[in-house]
Design a binder for these strands. Structure first.
Length: 450
RNA sequence: GUCCCGGUAGCUCAGCUGGAUAGAGCAACGGUUUCCUAAACCGUAGGCCGCGUGUUCGAAUCACGCUCGGGACACCA
């Protein structure tokens, strides 16, 4: 997975958590694009690496194959497992085997990457399995029975024509009847299904499994497919299911404010795994959620590790840690019975002792929390939670700093147990809200910063 | 040519299911602080919210047109 994929994964996971938070029953699914020509290319690329592992000089990776060196170990594993039995056979004999092996290896890598990010899916659906189980035929027969499939000729696209454009009859779905601009092809010229056809099968299957609100997370470069997919879901569900598609824009990797040019030759290529190892999953997740999903995101490798106000992860975590620092002091002074299990105890505090303007500001911020989560969930926009948490942290830090100048505003006042407990209740509530927000993000709140 | 996304302070962006003087961070400027509970803090300035028309008691927010930037437009993943 690359960094852009990670954004989609984190966004989808956080959106799911957000919806769960407000009471929806959510299932996280991963759709595996393991059919189609691309997988054959993958298999051929692995075969090349396999021959390489057996000692062949393969030279440069030929045009049309995947050059990534992440395929080297895959080829090497095959060589170790199977020896040279596939080395000199014609392609049709080794292709299925290599395809299956390569897909498994890729999915292992993807699952690893997802696990590293803390993203867990309940359902993985293989496109190939759908095809082999006849689900595509079923789904399209369903559409056909409704008279929504026909053989027809599409108008060439306006504007720049593809070089190899040829006008010919195709198997088309009447997408235009369901809100799309034109009807859409279901079969390729070689007779196999288009992605659209298998995608219909997947969504239909999902609908039949009982889901009526479907949310897809795609890269923004697939934006052109939204209408047709929504049209298909509308058609296939008889209007009973709604598909919403969230497009995630690209992530710009920066270092010190400058675009970070990734180059394998210069050894500056950063995989998702590198990134997670370098800055931690919590930082990656939080930063990915600080922008609206359909806006481009800058990810600055230096800034995210900075301990300053302009690093939102640090700033929010720092507030949480500071609060626990105070709680630890309170416990040491025997004001608090327990560091964590103290909510009931603090709920009895004399909150009317909180009268300073900074304290009241903080209370107002806290009171907004339920409304903030609701509106973030309703808008499907987890980033609102990030902005809220940042603001809440800012209010807390402001109060803290005020206590520097005015000693009577500090949280723990010697000789005034009542006001100390009231303030502990206040900041404990702040920690509770920050903890809740971070847990929606899948970020672990820290109680101490080394 | 069509469709989608975007244009808000010098920079990066919130706000957009209409509501009071449009917000934050950075940068700039002016101060305070080197104390303590933990990596400073306070203040100032800075905006025809891309342009225009419309709807409305009221528009950054909604509609239409224009403009600029990005992306997508048979079969491709």
């Amino acid at each position: 997975m690359h960094i852009g994929h990670a954004r989609g994964a984190v966004f989808g996971d956080a959106l799911a958590a957000l919806l769960e938070w407000v009471g929806f029953d959510v299932t996280r699914e991963y759709y595996i694009n393991d059919a189609g020509a691309q997988v054959d290319v993958l298999a051929r690329s692995v075969h090349l690496r396999y021959r390489e592992a057996l000692g062949e000089a393969i030279g440069d990776i030929p045009e049309g194959l995947y050059p990534g060196d992440y395929l080297q170990p895959v080829g090497a594993n095959l060589a170790q497992q199977d020896g040279d039995k596939w080395q000199n056979l014609p392609e049709e004999q080794w292709l299925p085997h290599f395809r299956a092996f390569a897909i498994d290896a890729m999915m292992d890598m993807i699952r690893d990457d997802l696990a590293g990010l803390g993203v867990v899916h309940a359902v993985f659906t293989s496109e190939r399995a759908l095809v082999e189980a006849g689900k595509v035929d079923e789904g399209l027969a369903h559409l056909d029975a409704m008279g929504l499939i026909y053989e027809g000729v599409l108008e060439p696209p306006k504007g720049k024509l593809p070089d190899d454009w040829e006008s010919r009859p195709q198997t088309l779905f009447k997408a235009a009847e369901f809100g799309d601009d034109v009807d859409r092809p279901l079969k390729k010229s070689d007779g196999s299904w288009t992605y659209f056809a298998t995608d219909i099968a997947y969504h239909w299957d999902k609908y039949r499994r009982g889901f009526d609100t479907l949310i897809d997370v795609w890269g923004a470069d697939h934006g052109g497919y939204v209408k047709r997919m929504q049209a298909a879901v509308r058609a296939v569900s008889g209007g009973n299911a709604v598909l919403d598609v969230k497009l995630c824009q690209m992530v710009n990797l920066l270092k010190g404010g400058q675009p970070f040019r990734m180059s394998k030759r210069a050894g500056t290529f950063v995989t998702l795994r590198d990134l997670v190892e370098q800055v931690g999953k919590d930082v990656v997740r939080f930063i990915m959620l600080t922008r609206k999903n359909d806006a481009q995101l800058d990810f600055d490798l230096d800034k995210v590790l900075e301990q300053s106000r302009d690093n939102p992860v640090f700033y929010v975590q720092y507030a949480h840690a500071r609060i626990f620092s105070v709680l630890r002091h309170a416990q040491a002074q025997e004001l608090l019975p327990d560091l964590h299990d103290n909510l009931d105890f603090l709920s009895k505090a004399a909150l009317s002792r909180l009268t300073d303007s900074a304290e009241l500001t903080l209370i107002r911020m806290l009171a907004e929390w339920p409304r903030q989560v609701d509106s973030a969930a309703e808008a499907n926009e987890p980033h609102r939670v990030a902005f809220y948490l940042y603001e809440l942290a800012a209010c807390f830090h402001a109060l803290w700093n005020k206590g520097k100048d005015e000693a009577q505003l500090r949280f723990l006042i010697e000789g005034d147990r009542e006001v100390s407990l009231a303030r502990l209740a206040l900041i404990r509530a702040v920690a509770l809200v920050i903890g809740s927000g971070l847990s929606i993000f899948g970020v672990t709140p820290v109680e101490e910063m080394r």
